[in-house]
Simulated scan of single mutants.
Amino acid sequence: MKKNITWILGVLLVLVVLVLVRTFNPNLFKRNVSEALTTTAEITVSVQELNDLPNSFSIVELDAEQQRFPNSMVIPFDQLLEKENKEKLAVLDGKILLYSADIATSSKAWVILNQLEFDGIYILSDEENPEALKYKFQPDTTIRLE
């Protein structure tokens, strides 16, 4: 009987430790993406619209190889979650425009930062009429027909 209670307490202790580790993870996603998409009417801004924006915006370039915009901050996408880079982003005032030559990279960074509860995050696009990023999810049926 004592042995069974020891096993049960051991399993409960392991579960409590795992819950605490997960709870205090600083990179844990906190927002619902669909809710964020509905609250943000338009998440893309074209390069042509930069002149119409108020002065309170910062451009964060996600491509480390080349800097396209003067006075922009360069944070490579693969280093986005490093503590020092998250601190740099947290102190920026106004809108934060994420730019990459590949809009998919900017979109991934937008989702990550949005989930980490950064506000005022937008995607800067080269296209004059940026593509709306509102696609209905459809499962891949090439493997198994539904």
Results as ranks from 00 to 15, higher is better:
107 S>I: 04
48 Q>I: 01
107 S>K: 08
84 E>H: 11
30 K>G: 09
59 I>R: 02
136 K>T: 13
39 T>H: 08
52 D>M: 02
68 R>H: 07
96 I>K: 15
82 E>S: 05
113 L>W: 01
38 T>K: 15
100 S>G: 09
96 I>E: 11
59 I>V: 08
28 L>H: 08
51 N>E: 13
93 D>V: 11
58 S>C: 12
72 S>P: 06
68 R>A: 10
76 P>K: 04
109 A>R: 01
76 P>L: 04
48 Q>R: 04
21 V>H: 08
24 F>R: 01
95 K>Y: 07
97 L>D: 06
89 L>W: 01
52 D>R: 10
123 I>A: 01
66 Q>S: 12
101 A>C: 00
72 S>D: 10
79 Q>K: 11
22 R>M: 11
98 L>Y: 08
62 L>G: 01
21 V>R: 10
121 I>P: 05
97 L>S: 07
74 V>M: 09
86 K>D: 02
47 V>K: 12
93 D>A: 15
72 S>F: 03
42 E>V: 05
134 K>T: 14
136 K>Y: 08
47 V>P: 00
86 K>F: 02
116 L>N: 07
103 I>V: 15
35 E>Y: 12
97 L>H: 09
33 V>T: 13
88 K>Q: 15
27 N>H: 09
57 F>Q: 04
45 V>L: 07
39 T>C: 07
64 A>Y: 09
69 F>C: 05
54 P>S: 14
38 T>S: 15
112 I>Q: 11
25 N>V: 01
65 E>K: 14
28 L>Q: 15
51 N>D: 10
117 E>Q: 13
75 I>Q: 04
128 E>V: 13
115 Q>T: 08
31 R>S: 14
44 T>E: 09
89 L>Q: 05
94 G>H: 04
92 L>N: 05
125 S>W: 06
24 F>L: 02
91 V>W: 00
44 T>P: 00
20 L>H: 07
78 D>G: 09
21 V>W: 11
65 E>L: 12
115 Q>D: 15
109 A>E: 03
54 P>M: 04
20 L>G: 13
88 K>A: 09
117 E>G: 00
132 A>P: 08
93 D>H: 11
46 S>N: 03
61 E>N: 06
64 A>H: 10
78 D>N: 14
47 V>I: 02
127 E>T: 10
51 N>H: 09
56 S>H: 06
19 V>R: 13
65 E>S: 13
43 I>Y: 00
75 I>K: 03
47 V>Q: 12
134 K>C: 02
103 I>T: 13
40 T>Q: 10
80 L>K: 02
83 K>F: 05
124 L>M: 06
132 A>I: 10
33 V>Q: 14
56 S>D: 15
55 N>E: 14
48 Q>V: 05
44 T>D: 10
129 N>P: 00
133 L>V: 10
